[in-house]
């Protein structure tokens, strides 16, 4: 045991658990991959499937940059183990446009200049896609509240709300 006031060392295991074979349908494409149990969905998307549009911000479910849609619902992929989503359908920001046409939310974010550095944007857009699918937000207050899981440190919030309102009107 470590002494109080010091970090406890990681538990050592003689043999690392074997990787587990899973299947994900990501942006419409069925993909098989073997993942360690501790691989998050975020790391699987970014490091294994090269879908780097989904961002790792805080990695603790506090910023929303990693937001993706799993079976149509928005979740934090950083707090999701890939093995637990075996068989799921995942939509990332790369999967929103169709046939070269931007998703209405992507177009609205451009129209309203709803970003500055852009790091939170893919999470914002995926989250907003989830929000529109849920159908619970009608007013600007409700959009703000139900988008509170996505932090924008540049402070582009007014334009983000305006962009979402535009996309809601056109959906």
């Amino acid at each position: 045991m470590a002494q109080p006031g010091t970090a406890e060392p990681l538990r050592q295991t003689d043999v690392l658990p074997e990787k587990i074979q899973i299947t994900l349908t990501v942006n419409g494409t069925r993909t098989g991959l073997a993942v360690a149990p501790w691989t998050t969905l975020l790391d699987a998307l970014r490091d294994r499937l090269d879908l780097t549009g989904t961002k790792k911000g805080c990695d603790h479910g506090q910023c929303g940059a990693c937001t993706v849609l799993v079976d149509g619902r928005r979740i934090n992929s950083c707090l999701t183990l890939a093995v637990m989503k075996d068989g799921a359908e995942v939509t990332t920001v790369e999967g929103l446009a169709s046939n070269g046409t931007l998703h209405p939310l992507q177009q609205a974010f451009i129209d309203h200049d709803a970003f500055q550095c852009g790091y939170c944007t893919s999470g914002q857009i995926c989250s907003a896609a989830g929000l529109i699918a849920e159908g619970k937000a009608r007013t600007a207050d409700e959009i703000r509240e139900l988008m509170s899981g996505n932090i924008c440190r540049c402070g582009a919030y007014p334009n983000i709300v305006a962009a979402i309102q535009q996309a809601m009107e056109r959906s």
Binding site: A7, L10, G61, L79, T80
Partner: peptide
């Protein structure tokens, strides 16, 4: 582990370090 929203976070901080997770989701 069910939703994992708290446990996975605590594992990342090394507050929790289970040797095995049983998925009840």
């Amino acid at each position: 582990v069910a939703g994992g929203t708290n446990l996975i976070d605590l594992m990342k901080y090394d507050v929790e370090h289970p040797a095995r997770l049983i998925d009840i989701s």
